[in-house]
Every structure is written in C-alpha cells, then in structure tokens.
Design a protein around this nucleic acid. Structure first.
Length: 305
DNA sequence: CGGACTCATCCGTGACATCT
DNA sequence: AGATGTCACGGATGAGTCCG
C-alpha cells in the first residue's frame, strides 16, 4: 500500500472558531465541539486515580505569550499600576500568598464595581514574592515625595494590605507595601511591551527552592480581553478568506523584515497585528460571510451550556 | 533519516465569581 | 469568610518543521 503524507492523514477541519481582537486575529480548527462538553458528564473524581498533570513550576514561554496577548488586545484603559510587597518576613507558600492576593482582589471588586485588573506574581532579588496589578479604575491617592522620588499613596488600601498579610504593626510595611503608580500610556501595545520587558529583566530572579505551591504566575478578570467578533464558521467558507489574510500579513511582514507566516488552513493560528488588514482588505470581500456564523453554533459553546 | 525545536490541542488544576 | 459554581491557564502530548 502507498504511504500517505501527513497532510493526507490529517482530517481537514469542518469548522473554524474565529476570534477578532483589538490587535490580533485568532482562529482555531475544530472537527466538532462534542469534546468540549465532555466535562459535564464526567464522573466524580476518583481519589486513588493519578493525574498526568504536573504542578506549575515556571513562567513558561507560552504563558508569557498569552499574557502579552491579553495586554495587547484588552479593550480596557489602564489607570494605575499597583505593586504589592511583603516585609522582611514573608510566607514561603504560594497558596498563602495567593490567598492574600485573593482577599485583596475581592475587596477591590467589591469597592469598585466594573473593575478589571490583571495581576502578575514575581520574585524579588531577595526571593520574596511580590505582585504587580494593573487596574482600569483609579484608587484615590495622595502624592508623596521621599528620597526615592515621588510616589502615590492610599492610606486606606495600604492598611488593608498590611492587615491581610498580618503586618499591620510594621510601620515601614504599611507605608511601602502597597505602592500605586499612575499609568500614563493608554496604548495596550506599549503596555504589553513594557510589561514583557519588565519581566525579562527580572526573570533570572527565581523563587527560592523551598518556596512551595507557586501556582499560576498571572491572572486577570473575566472580560479583561474580549474579542470584537467571534463565531463558528464552516471551514469551506472561510478557507479562502484566511488565505488572503495570510497573504496580506506576509506582505507586511516581508516589508518589516520579519519571518513570513506559513499558511496552513487546517491548523489553528494567531495572526498578530492584523486587525487593520482584516477590516480594510478582508471585510469588504468577505463581510457578508462573516456576518453569517455557522447557524447551529452562532455563539462559541460554553463548557456547561 | 533523526535529534532538536516549535506549536496547537486536550483537559485537570487553580483562579475568578457569586451566594450564603 | 467559606462553600460552591464556572471558567481558563498551562503541563503533557504529539504532530510538524528545521537543519545537518
């Protein structure tokens, strides 16, 4: 029998799940959506059964990519940059640290309705964990100046944070543990590159070996980043449109001296910096089809819906 | 051909959200 | 503040790609 090439073995997808974000376009291929709903019928967890999934160990490249993707495409305008730190003594358990963070974030959500935030955990050079949070609302602050320059201070929130961490008596921690900086740029792309740079500068600083239960390295509110358009489409209808997308994207990339995207309509891909091309070149030709998502799955399926 | 690397997909863990 | 419900991040996986 004749040997089949890999592309012949791969069954072509029937549907695309398309998401158009502020800056980037993402499409995923699906043969069907039944697998997504599998969670629903899952039987109760068997304690003795061992899971194949390991614990989170590091801030992976992939995770970093998604973080930047969220920041670039968020429709929020960011007002403040908060830094949470611990005093000299700090917990060596990620679960404790995260519960502190969670308490604070819950307070924020309660106080500022409609707030959106994105947090990132990081190790300081001394090995202590600290958090950066960007928020789309402004906590009222007073401007202060000390030997390190000017900074913004909220007495109420500083006290809350030191109380949560159990350091309310530590005057220095109350004063320095909760730092607020206003964000001047509203440009998501700039902010993303700033955060990414900030991170790469610090990534050598690892958590101490005996720091346990690190857990996730970043998180955001739901709805922090939402697509402008999303839907499920028949693959046959969108294939040519995607090809055109890649063509224009590659023209731009060649001009900029970047590596061309390899076009493969049978595998998912995200096309960065593509919104402009999408609306200028693609929508005029394919807008009609885009306005008609696959009829039985107009909305992307939810896990439990 | 084969090792090193890249990347999309799957699904369990861990985080957000809501209710009490 | 804890319990419960829902969502989504990221480890594991395996196919694809690059390079010698």
């Amino acid at each position: 029998m004749e040997k089949k090439t890999p592309s012949e073995l791969l069954t072509p997808p029937e549907y695309y799940y398309l998401q158009i974000f502020k800056e980037d376009v993402v499409y995923k291929t699906r043969s069907d959506y039944c697998d997504i709903r599998r969670h629903k019928n899952k039987t109760k967890k068997d304690e003795s059964e061992e899971s194949s999934r390991g614990r989170i160990q590091e801030f992976s490249k992939k995770s970093k990519y998604r973080l930047i993707h969220q920041l670039r495409n968020s429709q929020q305008t960011f007002k403040q940059f908060i830094t949470l730190t611990y005093p000299k003594d700090y917990p060596m358990d990620g679960a404790i640290v995260k519960s502190h963070l969670n308490t604070l974030l819950t307070r924020l959500r309660q106080e500022f309705s409609g707030i959106h935030y994105l947090w990132v955990i990081e190790a300081q050079s001394r090995g202590a964990p600290h958090f950066h949070i960007i928020i789309n609302q402004a906590i009222p602050t007073k401007k202060k100046i000390d030997k390190d320059g000017q900074y913004f201070y909220s007495e109420c929130w500083s006290k809350r944070w030191s109380k949560i961490t159990g350091n309310e008596k530590d005057k220095h921690h109350v004063r320095r543990g909760f730092r607020i900086d206003p964000i001047t740029t509203s440009n998501g792309k700039k902010l993303a590159s700033y955060m990414a740079k900030y991170y790469s500068k610090n990534e050598q600083k690892e958590f101490a070996k005996d720091f346990i239960n690190i857990g996730r390295f970043w998180g955001a509110t739901r709805g922090f980043t939402q697509p402008i358009v999303q839907g499920v489409y028949c693959a046959s209808e969108l294939k040519w449109m995607l090809k055109l997308c890649f063509h224009y994207a590659n023209l731009e990339r060649s001009k900029a001296g970047l590596k061309r995207y390899a076009f493969d309509a049978d595998r998912g891909c995200s096309i960065w910096g593509f919104r402009k091309i999408f609306f200028e070149k693609v929508v005029p030709l394919f807008g009609d089809r885009l306005s008609r998502p696959y009829k039985d799955l107009e909305k992307p399926p939810t896990l439990y819906g």
